[in-house]
Design a protein around this nucleic acid. Structure first.
Lengths: 107, 107
DNA sequence: TCGACATATGAAATTTTATTCATACATTTG
DNA sequence: CAAATGTATGAATAAAATTTCATATGTCGA
């Protein structure tokens, strides 16, 4: 997904590279289930896959795919503890991003 | 895309409906070209399609599709003035969303 | 009215993302 | 070690989003 705008884009400080990175993170967040995951982990740091799966009522495998993607993209981190694997927010900024929009009266 | 979580999701104030709306807006923003459009319009309210197309070096039709989508989803508004159509930001909150992530040192 | 310019639109073709399903892997416990 | 539990993985499929291309529409000026 390498977009190519004319080299020195003036606008507002954002380089092409940065725009791509921002888009990348936004895309990784832009999904109801993934937003719910962020919400959950914002409220309670570190929860196991089963906990999350139960609370969100999302099938194990599907959830695992979501979690893996978010981890891969740096939004989450995980650590094993016995049989369980606990996920937590690594890029806490996404909370603000969501809050920002969630605060919009018109939504 | 109607996701169905168990009815009363406690977490953090965000209803399922709101999560879907937030995801909807995020998805509409999550693309390098569209982020560039927001940047452009944040710096200078109201620009014609040709202006934007020139600055971003994006083909007319493709740009038009992007603009139409963003307008449809309430992020932009447009007004015709003679031969030109001027677009401007309607949902200015997206600026903050982008800035928020753009400010992340690690990106 | 015709031609040129600015923009939109719609239908393919492509690419990306999401979902499902079956199965594998790791850890604990009996 | 076998069974149970928790989680990951990969392939197949389904669904969305992006891009391209051809063409339509609106507006202006000669």
């Amino acid at each position: 997904m390498s977009t190519s705008f004319p080299a020195p884009l003036v606008d507002m400080g954002l380089s092409i590279e940065k725009m791509e990175k921002v888009a990348f993170i936004l895309k990784t967040t832009a999904h109801p289930t993934r937003i719910a995951i962020v919400q959950l982990l914002a409220a309670q740091e570190s929860q196991s896959v089963t906990e999350i799966s139960d609370k969100l009522n999302v099938e194990q495998s599907l959830l695992s795919h979501h979690l893996a993607g978010m981890k891969l993209k740096g939004i989450l981190s995980s650590t094993r503890e016995g049989k369980n694997i606990y996920y937590s927010l690594k890029m806490r900024e996404v909370i603000d991003v969501i809050q920002c929009l969630a605060g919009c009266t018109f939504l």
